[in-house]
């Protein structure tokens, strides 16, 4: 179900001396099934933005439409919205509270008023989706490792069967291995379920590998909204706002500057590898021709 944001603004502490504008006239269309990266420096308003998507925060001005309906309209079912737009917060493992993993994952679907059987089925499916082994299901969530806790927390949101999944910095505080595992899992999830996924991050390297569209936020407004390689063309502007293009982009640019005839459009290591390989192939072809 598409989400449309129409000139959404949000001001913290309005009408006080300490008013801060967190969002300024943000207009976006989020169609079904896209894999989107939402990128911005700390304080750029990305977390504020995602909390508007499921109605946790109310826009100071502007409106948000979910499936064509204004979410701030009277009588709009916010509970339904929150089950359809699953939001996984930063450090989601801090929200765990039940005595065992399975019961915690059941919390979301139980709140939807489903039958016990359906609740348990969904919890089981969600735990399978995030790749947690059965042996952990009835352990206390507090005995798990950081990465496992995070999976359980993500499963807690997935169990509501959302159509849009928003993850706020899902890799914060994880080691490189844990980070890759979580991101691969999310990407697999996206392929299996076909849901819309919005990945919030401040690391281009994390995002470039997976997403098909990047939205760059700066000081509360949308700066770029395009395919990854189009966005990375502006790497100098990105640096000015405290972000950076993926490291491979810099390598390819350097190669270009040194007179090698390679394209600088590669955004992932795999693509860069192919590009360099094809350059070698071209070189040897030329060599043979000579």
């Amino acid at each position: 179900m598409p989400i449309i944001l129409d000139k959404v603004s949000h001001v913290y502490g309005q009408d006080t001396a300490m008013a801060v504008t967190a969002l300024k006239n943000v207009s976006l269309v989020i169609p079904d099934g896209q894999f989107i990266g939402l990128i911005g420096h700390t304080g750029s308003g990305k977390s504020t933005l995602v909390q508007h998507l499921n109605g946790l925060m109310k826009a100071t001005s502007g409106s948000i439409y979910f499936n064509g309906e204004d979410i701030d309209a009277e009588g709009f079912d916010k509970k339904m919205l929150r089950s359809k737009v699953g939001l996984v917060f930063q450090y989601p493992e801090h929200q765990l509270f039940e005595t065992d993993v399975f019961a915690d994952v059941c919390f979301g679907p139980k709140n939807l008023g489903l039958s016990k059987k359906e609740v348990e089925l969904r919890a089981y499916e969600a735990l399978k989706l995030v790749g947690l082994e059965d042996a952990y299901f009835y352990q206390s969530p507090f005995d798990l490792s950081g990465g496992q806790k995070r999976r359980v927390a993500i499963a807690g949101v997935l169990a509501m069967k959302p159509e849009v999944l928003v993850l706020d910095e899902p890799t914060a505080g994880l080691d490189p291995k844990g980070r890759d595992e979580i991101l691969d899992q999310i990407s697999r999830l996206k392929k299996e379920t076909g849901m819309t996924v919005i990945l919030v991050s401040h690391s281009m390297d994390d995002v470039a590998k997976y997403v098909e569209r990047i939205i760059v936020m700066n000081k509360g407004s949308v700066m770029y909204d395009d395919a990854p390689r189009e966005v990375f063309r502006h790497y100098q502007e990105l640096e000015q706002i405290g972000l950076a293009a993926p490291q491979v982009t810099y390598i390819m640019k350097d190669l270009q500057d040194h007179g090698y005839d390679v394209s600088d459009e590669a955004t992932t290591i795999e693509k860069a590898k192919e590009e360099i390989k094809s350059w070698f192939a071209r070189l040897s072809a030329v060599g043979k021709g000579r």
Binding site: R82, F89, G108, N111, V157, M160
Partner: peptide, 13 residues
């Protein structure tokens, strides 16, 4: 505030 929002996102009432 944060935890409240996280649980609200899981349809807590």
């Amino acid at each position: 505030d944060k935890i409240m929002k996280a649980q609200l996102a899981r349809c807590a009432d």
